[in-house]
């Protein structure tokens, strides 16, 4: 009973720390109001060229070739649903590392790391803020696309989609931890993010079906969590054909999550320890 109480108190403490980090990030973000407003427009601005390019190439909204490849012809909905996941991928590759970098820039990283919470709890708070931020961006995108292009999705597909996204986010947290580690050890950690981002953007079938990639890249794509997110989301929301069942997707994502989280935490712990040995934790 006593042990249970200790665990409960610890859980409450850690959950409070995660939430506080999220709130603090929102408050800091909202102090730069013009930048925040620009950030709300960005997702729409970046999405539009994809859509217009697709429509121009196909010669309309409906593509027979797309229908043949994935079982659905609506290129606008296809790209919009895929594009949503770029944000999630960017969140993992950039947001957490950038948050740590900001703490170094503010000079607050050591004060935060001196607190009695494991350091991964703090990064989890950063991750929560990034996810909520991303959801806000998606909401803006969806409202815009609904208003201008009217996307057609199956509302019954929302529940399994959210389930897959939730699991995908766990795996992305692992990737985020891994990427954030580079921020601690290399002051130009963004180079790694840039390289990995380029590779994952090609492997993730955002604006094209997986089938157009060479066979070895299709295999490689199956190790990227967002691939499952995109394919299953499009499967349930607009009927894209996929080569695996929902259970397969969940199982593979669970495995990927386990691997990425374990790998991310391990690398983060090792590098964070190394920076405390080298005395470079707060170096900017």
């Amino acid at each position: 009973m006593n042990r249970l109480r200790i665990w409960w108190s610890k859980l409450r403490h850690y959950a409070g720390a995660v939430w506080a980090e999220n709130i603090k990030e929102w408050k800091l973000e909202l102090t730069y109001k013009a930048d925040f407003a620009r950030g709300l427009i960005d997702p729409v601005v970046y999405l539009l060229p994809y859509l217009l390019y697709g429509v121009a190439l196909v010669g309309g909204r409906s593509s027979e070739n797309l229908q043949r490849l994935v079982g659905t012809s609506d290129i606008i909905t296809f790209i919009t649903l895929g594009y949503v996941f770029i944000g999630f991928l960017n969140m993992a590759l950039w947001a957490m590392g950038f948050s740590l970098r900001k703490e170094q820039f503010y000079g607050t990283l050591e004060s935060v790391f001196a607190a009695p919470v494991p350091r991964w709890v703090f990064t989890m708070g950063m991750s929560l803020h990034s996810i909520l931020h991303q959801l806000l961006m998606i909401a803006v995108q969806i409202v815009f696309i609904l208003a201008v292009f009217s996307i057609r999705i199956n509302p019954l597909g929302l529940l399994p989609t959210l389930l897959v996204i939730a699991l995908m986010l766990v795996a992305l947290y692992g990737i985020g931890m891994f990427m954030a580690s580079f921020t601690l050890i290399f002051k130009q950690g963004w180079l790694v993010s840039e390289a990995l981002s380029s590779i994952l953007m090609i492997l993730t079938p955002i604006a094209y079906p997986l089938a157009v990639l060479p066979a070895f890249m299709q295999q490689a794509a199956l190790f990227v969590p967002t691939t499952y997110g995109i394919l299953t989301a499009r499967h349930f929301l607009m009927g894209e054909k996929i080569s695996f069942t929902l259970n397969d997707a969940l199982l593979r994502l669970a495995l990927l999550s386990l691997l990425w989280v374990a790998f991310g935490l391990l690398v983060f712990a090792l590098i964070e320890r190394q920076t405390r040995r080298a005395g470079t934790l707060s170096h900017y």
Binding site: R12, H13, G16, A17, S111, P116, F122
Partner: peptide
């Protein structure tokens, strides 16, 4: 706000 944030880190 600073103190609220750090208070949460300290439980």
């Amino acid at each position: 706000d600073n103190l609220r944030f750090f208070a949460a880190l300290y439980g």
